[in-house]
Measured scan of single mutants.
Amino acid sequence: MGFKLLSKLLVYLTASIMAIASPLAFSVDSSGEYPTVSEIPVGEVRLYQIADGVWSHIATQSFDGAVYPSNGLIVRDGDELLLIDTAWGAKNTAALLAEIEKQIGLPVTRAVSTHFHDDRVGGVDVLRAAGVATYASPSTRRLAEVEGNEIPTHSLEGLSSSGDAVRFGPVELFYPGAAHSTDNLIVYVPSASVLYGGCAIYELSRTSAGNVADADLAEWPTSIERIQQHYPEAQFVIPGHGLPGGLDLLKHTTNVVKAHTNRSVVE
């Protein structure tokens, strides 16, 4: 069995187990497998329904001669939608809004960016022009300005110390501490036991640490421990890039980060 097929099978099995364990909360999309990078042309966006009122959005972007996937989250909030992270750029984010209108038909009224990198804030200006209120932590807003990236308009308070959590509509926002970046936030959907790890969490097929220019490698494993301790009931975990899975993604990420750190020390 090929690795790609095995990865998709694991996603399907995880979703099936969740649907059985929580039949009222989960209505997993039966329309197909989780979209992969090879299936999404740059400039297009796919939506994948995880649970009743919960979707991931998947886009792709060219970077350094390669094409990478990027995940975000959409959560229903009454007759409105909360968006977590842009679709990595203005063109993708405009396509995301169009796809949401086509498939869901509810307005996106608020959006949260989970850290300051372009795959999370690139497209904020498109959201703002569409009347979406954009939010991020003060740290993310400051770092985005320093980096020359787009800056969300509103500040999220109460997320300055490791372990801080605040309720934001249908989700809980959690600051686990520094990891992929010093400002990275985690998003949890309690009604569906869905954990969105953003770039602080890796997919299972990833074996290298990737972009760690703004990471705190020493603190990252401790931050992941905080996530595990705060959300032990999480059933569906979405990484910032690639295929979702279960809580095993947290341990896998820790292993990859520690291996990278150990290699760096040896070198």
Rank of each mutant, 00 (worst) to 15 (best):
R128Y: 10
V132A: 06
Q49G: 11
Y34R: 08
F26H: 11
E150Q: 06
L217A: 05
A209S: 09
I50K: 03
P23Y: 11
A144I: 06
D29L: 09
F116D: 03
V171H: 02
D248S: 11
N92A: 06
G72W: 02
Y202L: 15
S191A: 12
L156E: 02
D29K: 10
G245Y: 03
F3W: 07
A111T: 07
R110H: 11
G131R: 08
H180I: 01
H230K: 15
Y34E: 08
Q229F: 11
T109F: 08
E44I: 08
A165F: 15
P152W: 00
D85I: 00
Q103N: 15
K258M: 12
T14Y: 14
L106W: 07
L81C: 04
P232E: 07
N71H: 02
G198K: 02
A259T: 10
T222M: 12
G32S: 10
L97A: 01
N255G: 14
P107V: 11
I104M: 05
G105F: 04
G32F: 14
I238L: 07
L127A: 03
N211E: 13
E267K: 13
L159V: 10
V112P: 04
A218Y: 14
P69K: 08
G131H: 08
R110C: 06
D214C: 05
E203L: 02
Y188G: 01
I201H: 05
I238H: 00
G123M: 03
A87G: 04
A111V: 06
V121K: 01
S30D: 12
G177Q: 02
V132S: 05
G53H: 09
L5Q: 15
Y202K: 06
H57V: 02
N255K: 13
R263V: 14
L73K: 01
I104G: 00
L47D: 03
E101P: 08
K8P: 01
T153E: 15
V121A: 05
V45F: 03
Q235N: 10
E80G: 10
G53D: 15
R128L: 09
L127M: 03
E233C: 05
P232R: 09
H115P: 04
R142L: 14
P41A: 15
R263D: 15
R226D: 02
D79T: 10
S162T: 11
G123Y: 05
N262Y: 11
A21D: 15
S70W: 00
I100C: 01
E99N: 11
Q61R: 15
F174S: 05
P35H: 07
S113T: 06
Y175N: 06
S62R: 10
Q61P: 05
Y135H: 08
S113Q: 04
R76F: 06
E101W: 09
K8V: 15
Y12W: 12
L250H: 05
E33I: 10
D164R: 08
S191V: 09
E150R: 02
L6Q: 10
R167T: 12
A136F: 02
T182Y: 13
S113R: 03
Y175G: 00
S30V: 13
G43H: 09
V28D: 11
V42E: 15
V28L: 09
Y202R: 06
C199L: 02
G240H: 06
I58G: 03
R46C: 06
V42P: 15
L249T: 02
I201L: 11
Y135F: 11
G158E: 07
S155G: 11
N184E: 00
N262A: 13
L82M: 10
G197E: 01
V11G: 07
V37G: 15
A19T: 15
V126G: 04
A59K: 05
D85G: 01
D64A: 13
R46M: 14
S31L: 10
T253L: 00
H230S: 12
D77I: 02
D164E: 10
S38N: 08
V189Y: 05
V212T: 10
S205V: 08
H180G: 00
T253D: 00
I74G: 02
E172D: 07
G169C: 06
I100V: 11
G169N: 04
G53N: 11
D52E: 13
G197D: 05
A200W: 02
L250A: 00
A59E: 08
E39Y: 11
K251L: 11
A259F: 08
A234Q: 01
V265H: 11
P239Y: 01
S223F: 05
P244E: 02
V212I: 10
A19G: 12
H180N: 04
G122V: 07
D183W: 00
T182Q: 11
P41Y: 07
Y68D: 06
S162I: 11
A25S: 14
A192K: 10
A94T: 14
T109A: 12
V45M: 04
G123H: 03
L247H: 12
L217T: 09
H230Y: 09
D214M: 05
Q103D: 14
L24T: 15
E145V: 09
G177D: 06
Y12E: 11
L143K: 07
L83N: 00
L47C: 02
V37I: 14
A15Y: 12
G242V: 05
S139E: 13
L159E: 01
T93I: 04
G65Y: 07
S62I: 06
T261I: 12
S22G: 12
G65K: 10
G43S: 07
H57W: 00
G163R: 05
V121H: 04
A95G: 08
I100S: 03
F174Y: 10
S62K: 08
T36S: 13
Y202W: 06
P152L: 03
G177W: 03
E267C: 03
E99T: 11
T222W: 11
Y12K: 15
G158C: 05
S56W: 15
P244T: 04
N71Q: 05
P107W: 05
V124L: 09
V67T: 15
T86V: 02
S264E: 14
A111M: 10
L13S: 14
Y196H: 07
A95M: 13
T153V: 14
G245N: 03
Q61I: 08
G123E: 04
D52A: 12
E157T: 12
A218L: 14
G210Y: 05
L217C: 01
V171W: 03
G240P: 04
I58D: 02
N71I: 04
T254I: 13
N184H: 03
S30Q: 13
R141E: 02
E147W: 15
G53S: 10
G197P: 04
I74A: 06
T222A: 13
